[in-house]
Simulated assay, not measured.
Amino acid sequence: MTTTPTTTQSLPPSKAKLWLAAIKPPMYTVAIIPITVGTAFAFGETGIFDSKIFGTFLTSAILIIAWLNISNDVFDADTGIDKNKAHSIVNLTGDKSLMFWLANLFLCLGILGILLIAWWQKDITVLLIILLCCALGYSYQGPPFRFGYQGLGEFICFFTFGPLAISAVYYSQTQQFSLFSLAPGILIGISTSIILFCSHFHQVEDDLAAGKKSPIVRMGTQLASQVLTVTTVLFFALVVLFSLLHLFSFWTLLVFSSVPIAYQLVTHVNKNHDKPNQVSNCKFIAVRLHFVSGLLLALGLIIPQLS
């Protein structure tokens, strides 16, 4: 009597796994880290920390990221680029209209939190910056712009989640701007853009079919993998440079504890850049790098104020 071996690879993903992939829990770190680092930088420079502002801003950021994630699936459904994406929330629900209005509800709730901050402070500066960030976020996939389809997504991501977000958070704590906040803004902008950059490696064929000129499509996977390596090295080099320029204390060199994750990311992509099934998980390694390096940066920023 013989038996035919079975493997889990031959089984389709369960509904639960598809929903988990659609909700994208790891991606909400792109909300958590800018708020945390911006607050840490404000505290490190001024000693000011308002927990109510921090909690409200963090909640609003998470809601706005939910809007971005759902609305991007809605807009991608319009172009057909997600027709092979089983974990698209539109494909899972089969109701694009419902998802569109749910996304807008999350956006309104997120903006309501920022309005609260503006009301508490009698100052609309933070609100204006966040509205600009939301407009840039919409332009990434939303019609008629769809700048992500022209390969501009990483630039939008850099400014939205980097300098703009960090300056808004800094202002929310101190009600003043700091030119030096550009330093953590640049770092978080780079690490967030790396996540988006890595998300393209496994979907070159779908992007080409939909006319999406992502950076990976434009450069090819091999050159793109080299660009990823250079960008990752640049991230750590800037941490050293900002420390040498005394924009950061040397405690921020704690960020180098995340080097093993960075090494895993670049070696994995360099080895599998042209193998969609193998490289598809690289964005989750990038998320882990962003999260761990961001928390270490925040820790390095607050330690001098605590000592």
Rank of each mutant, 00 (worst) to 15 (best):
Y140L: 01
W120Q: 14
G148T: 09
P144E: 07
V169Y: 06
T160G: 03
Q150C: 14
L115N: 05
A135P: 00
A168H: 00
F155V: 09
A165N: 13
C134Y: 02
L131S: 04
C157K: 03
Y149A: 14
I166L: 15
I130F: 06
G151E: 14
L164M: 12
L127D: 05
L132V: 14
Y140T: 07
L132K: 07
K122M: 15
F155Y: 05
I117W: 06
L136P: 00
L164P: 08
V169F: 13
L132A: 08
Q121H: 15
F159M: 09
L152G: 05
L152R: 14
F145Y: 14
Q141W: 07
A165E: 12
L152F: 10
I124M: 05
Y171K: 09
Q141K: 13
S139V: 00
A168N: 01
I114H: 03
F158K: 06
Q150T: 15
K122V: 14
F161C: 02
P163A: 10
P163K: 13
L136E: 00
I156E: 00
A135D: 00
F158V: 04
Q150A: 15
C134T: 11
V169G: 06
F159H: 09
L152I: 01
W119N: 08
R146N: 15
Y171V: 11
C134H: 01
I130Y: 04
S139E: 01
F161H: 02
A168D: 04
V169I: 15
D123Y: 10
L132S: 08
D123M: 10
I166V: 13
C134E: 12
V169C: 09
V169N: 11
Y170F: 13
I166D: 09
I117R: 01
